[in-house]
Design a protein around this nucleic acid. Sequence first.
DNA 1: CATGAATGAGAATTCATTCAT
DNA 2: AATGAATGAATTCTCATTCAT
Lengths: 196, 196, 196, 196
Amino acid sequence: MAPGHSQGQSPADTRAAILRAAVALMGDRSYAGTPVPEVAARAGVAAGTIYRHFSGKQALVNAVYRECKLAMGACLNRAAAGAGSHREVFHRLWRGLWEFSRKQRDAFRFLELHRHQPYLDTESQAVARSVSEGIADFVRTAQAAGAMRPGPPEMLIALAFGAFVGLVKEAEAGHTTLDETAVAASEDAVWGMLRA
Amino acid sequence: MAPGHSQGQSPADTRAAILRAAVALMGDRSYAGTPVPEVAARAGVAAGTIYRHFSGKQALVNAVYRECKLAMGACLNRAAAGAGSHREVFHRLWRGLWEFSRKQRDAFRFLELHRHQPYLDTESQAVARSVSEGIADFVRTAQAAGAMRPGPPEMLIALAFGAFVGLVKEAEAGHTTLDETAVAASEDAVWGMLRA
Amino acid sequence: MAPGHSQGQSPADTRAAILRAAVALMGDRSYAGTPVPEVAARAGVAAGTIYRHFSGKQALVNAVYRECKLAMGACLNRAAAGAGSHREVFHRLWRGLWEFSRKQRDAFRFLELHRHQPYLDTESQAVARSVSEGIADFVRTAQAAGAMRPGPPEMLIALAFGAFVGLVKEAEAGHTTLDETAVAASEDAVWGMLRA
Amino acid sequence: MAPGHSQGQSPADTRAAILRAAVALMGDRSYAGTPVPEVAARAGVAAGTIYRHFSGKQALVNAVYRECKLAMGACLNRAAAGAGSHREVFHRLWRGLWEFSRKQRDAFRFLELHRHQPYLDTESQAVARSVSEGIADFVRTAQAAGAMRPGPPEMLIALAFGAFVGLVKEAEAGHTTLDETAVAASEDAVWGMLRA
DNA sequence: CATGAATGAGAATTCATTCAT
DNA sequence: AATGAATGAATTCTCATTCAT
C-alpha cells in the first residue's frame, strides 16, 4: 500500500549495479539457480526495479553475457594488436587471459558457465562469434607464417582456451591461486601444443 | 485410478530409467533448470516414484554424478592399465576420453556442467578425487621417467582435460562432429603440450 | 518446505469446485479483477491446484465461459424444442431465460460480463456461435410463418436478449427481485417488439 | 532529464487527454484490466502526472464515469426537450442514442462496462440516477397520456435501453455497422415494445 | 512399490503510487 | 505542473515434495 522511492544515483548507475550483481550471482549459481530478487538485493535495488531496466530475466542474462564477452574480447584484442613475433603475441594473449580472469573473475566465470545456452539470443551469439573471429584471424596468420601447427583455427583455439579454462577451474577448486610461476609454466606448455 | 506396480519393470530398472532421464536433462539444462516432474516424465514414471528411489532432488543429482564419474573413471583406468610407452598410454587415454564423450554424451556433458557445484556432497567429491588420483599417478610416473614435462600433475591434467572439454564443446556448438582426423590431430597437439 | 496434500474428493470434483468459484467471482468482479488465489480460496483448494486443472488463468475463463454458455444453450434448446405456436415457444424461451438467470445467477452474470472479450479463444467463440445459431433458427421459422417481424434474425435476437439483460441488471441494481408479474409484463412487452 | 512543463499544454488540456485515454482503454479492457501507466502513455504524459490531476486510479474512473454519463444525459435531454408527439420524442431519443454511440463510441462502451461497479462512488451513482430520472419522467408522461404501456418506468427503460445496448454490441461483434436501415427498423420494433 | 492429485512456499513479473528533480 | 525512476505489495505461475489410494 505504501510504495516507495529512493534515488541517489543515475539510471545508468542502477543498471550497472544490476549487471554487476547478476554477473556475480549467475556466474556462481547458474542462470536458473539465481532468483531475480536475489540479484536485486545484491544490487541494492527493489525487485521491481530490475524490470524497468530489463524486460525480463532472459534479457538480463543476455545483457550480462554481451557485456562480459565484449570485455574479454577487448582484452584479447589489445593483446593481439601490438607488434612482435607470433610467440610474443601469444604471450600477451595468455597473459591477457590471465589478467582478465583475475581482475574480472566474475565475468570470466559467468562466460564459462553460459556458453551456448539456449536462452542466449541471436545478438549475444553474434557478439560471441565476432570475438572468436578476431582470435581466429591471429591463428590463421601465424599458421600461414609457419609459426603454428596447421589445422582448423577453431580447433586450436578450442584446445588452448579449453586448457586455460581447465587451469582456472582447477585453481579455484584446488583453492590454489594461479600465480606467476604457474601462468608462465602453463603458457610454455600451451605454446608447445600450438607451435608448428 | 488403479495404483500398483508398473508392468514388467524391476525396481532396479525404474531406478536406472530415472538416472538416465536425469543425466540427459540435467546435463542439458543444469540442476536448477531441471524440474523433478520433467525427469519423471522422461523416465516414464510418476513424480512420486522418484522419491521412493531418492530422498530428494539433491540426492538424485549426487547419485547421477557418482555414476557418471565412476563410468568415466573406469573408462580412463582401462586405458591407463595396459602396457606400452607413456606416449602409447596417452594415446589410449585420449581415445578413451573420446569414446566416452561419444558413447555417453549425456554423462560427459553432465559431468562438465556439474563440476564443483555446492550441492555435491562429500561422497561425490570423494569419488571425483579418487578418479583424478588415478590419472595423476600416471602423470607422476611419466614425469619421473622424463617423458612428460615437470610441474604439478594437477596442472597438466587440468590443461589436457580442459583442452579436451574445449574441443568437445566446440564440436557441439559448431555442429561439427569430432571425427577421426580431428581426434588424431588434437591428440598430437596435446601431447605436444605434455611431453618433456 | 512442508508441502501438503489433502484429498477427499475426485479430481473431477476439484475441477468443478474451481469452476464454480470462478464463475461466481469473475461474474462479479471481471476477469482482470479476480486474482487466482481468491478463486482457489473460494474453491477450497490451494492456489497451485488450479494450475493442475487449467494451464493458466486464461484457460480457466475459457473453460468457465464454455460451460456457462452451453448450460444456457441447453436451457434455451429445451424451451425451443416443444410444440406449440410461435408465441408459446417464445413464452417458454422467455421463461427459460428467467429460470436460467435465477437458478444460475452466477453463470448468467458471468456470460454477460465476458461477451466478446479478447481472452476468449476460438473454441469459446465457436460455442457461442453454435448456441446463437439455434435461436436464430427459431426466429427464421417464425418469420417465414409470418409470426415475427422481418429483418435479420441476429438483430431481433440482439434486441430481445438485450432487453432481458437490461431487465436483469436493473432488477439487481434496483435491489428488486424480478417477480412473476414483472416477468409476465416484460414477456408481453418484448413480444410486442418481435411480433409481425 | 529536465523536469518542467510539457510544451504548449494547459493543465486542462492535460486533464482532458488523460480522461480521453482512460475512456478508451477502460472501455475496452475494464477497470482492473487497465494499468495506469498505459493510460499515461496513451495520454502522452508521464505516469506521475496522472496523480497531479486525480488522487488515484479510482478517482480517475469516477471522473471518467461522470463525464461520460453526463455527456449521454445531455444528449438524451436534448432529444427529450423538443416538441412533438411521444412517438416523435421517442424517435429523437433513439436517434440520439445512436448518435451518441457512434460519435462517442468509447464513452458508450465505457458506460456499459462500468454499470453499478463497486468502485463507483456516491457522486457517480447520483449522476447516474439523475440521468435516469430525466428519462423516467418522459416515460411517466407518456404513460399518463396513454401513449405507452403501463408498468414501472424503470422496467420499460431497462428493456428499451437494454435492447439498444444489445444491438450495439451485436453490431460491434458481428462487424456490421449499425446503419440507417437497421436503426430505423430497430426503432420501430422497440416502439412496438413500448407503446400502449 | 507405484501413482498422481494436492500442496504451499517461492519464483517471475506487474503495477499503483511516490517523490527528488 | 510535469517527469520518470524507484518502490514493494500483489499477481500469475512453478515445482519439490507428500500421501491416500
